[in-house]
């Protein structure tokens, strides 16, 4: 069994139908099955607990027992790839979207995406959000040429459902009364200081921010957004982005010039 011991041991940890790995013993000729099952249980319970910690709103929505049974299936299909356990669950939303028993709740995968993005924002690098004065200091005629550096914590989740309202209600332990799941919503996740904030965005704002994040100038982003959303309220979107801390710096003239404002 040279070299293959841990492969067999690991496979049997995740699949209780596999026999005890060869060479595993207990003292005085005792059986080792229940002893090996302690490892199985440790692995399973610790990973389910990890998922419950990463996706608390989801657990509350489907109920603890259902969540834990579902998490048990997911972790066998997709065990963590890294010992950094707070990064686990990147594929949970896709798993949910294929999970037949939840087919009647198509908003749940987007709730999972929001929760995963929330934790990514929590652990993202520190940066001061863009100071409103920096934008105010740009000469008006240069505003259209201005580009922005996204804050490391900024995430945008666009949903065909009311995932942001449902996420917020669940995290705040409110009922879903008054929420119409079929209403599409866009969510903005930021961490302007040390608290993660989640906002629902008005129509067009997500496209506008995504354009700026990908490097478009303020003028380009505004034009493309207004073309798609004629009612888009540009001044409101700019104040929301300053308040939420979507960006950490802005530049005018050549992008990435040596002259940050």
């Amino acid at each position: 069994m040279v070299g293959s011991g841990q492969h067999d041991f690991g496979a049997a940890l995740l699949d209780p139908d596999l026999p005890l790995p060869e060479g595993i013993t207990a003292p005085n000729g005792k059986k080792a099955a229940r002893r090996f099952a302690i490892y199985r249980n440790n692995v399973t319970v610790s990973l389910i607990d990890a998922l419950a910690g990463i996706f608390p709103a989801l657990q509350r929505l489907v109920g603890e027992t259902f969540f834990r049974d579902m998490a048990r299936l997911y972790l066998v299909q997709e065990p963590p790839r890294s010992p950094v356990i707070f990064e686990y669950g990147g594929g949970f939303a896709d798993f949910l979207s294929q999970f037949e028993p939840l087919a009647a709740y198509p908003y749940l995968p987007d709730v999972a995406r929001l929760e995963r993005a929330w934790l990514d924002a929590f652990h993202a690098a520190d940066a001061d959000p863009l100071h409103p004065g920096s934008l105010g200091a740009i000469p008006p005629e240069r505003l259209a040429d201005t580009t922005f550096t996204p804050h490391p914590a900024t995430r945008i989740v666009q949903s065909r459902f009311a995932a942001i309202s449902i996420f917020s209600a669940s995290r705040e332990e409110r009922t879903l009364d008054g929420i119409r799941p079929a209403n599409a919503e866009d969510g903005l996740i930021t961490r302007p200081a040390y608290s993660v904030e989640v906002r629902q965005l008005p129509a067009g704002a997500a496209d506008f921010f995504l354009a700026l994040i990908s490097g478009a100038t303020l003028g380009e982003a505004a034009d493309s957004t207004i073309a798609r959303y004629p009612e888009f309220d540009l001044p409101s979107a700019i104040s929301a982005m300053l308040e939420a801390g979507v960006f950490s710096a802005c530049w005018f003239g050549e992008p990435n010039s040596e002259d940050p404002s």
């Binding site: 997709e78 065990p79 790839r81 010992p83």
Partner: peptide, 21 residues
């Protein structure tokens, strides 16, 4: 202990045999 193998990271401290290798 060991905790990672080709299948992934097991989030537990797993035992090793006590031999020369």
């Amino acid at each position: 202990a060991w905790s990672s193998h080709d299948a992934g990271y097991f989030n537990d401290l797993l035992p090793v045999p006590y031999d020369r290798q």
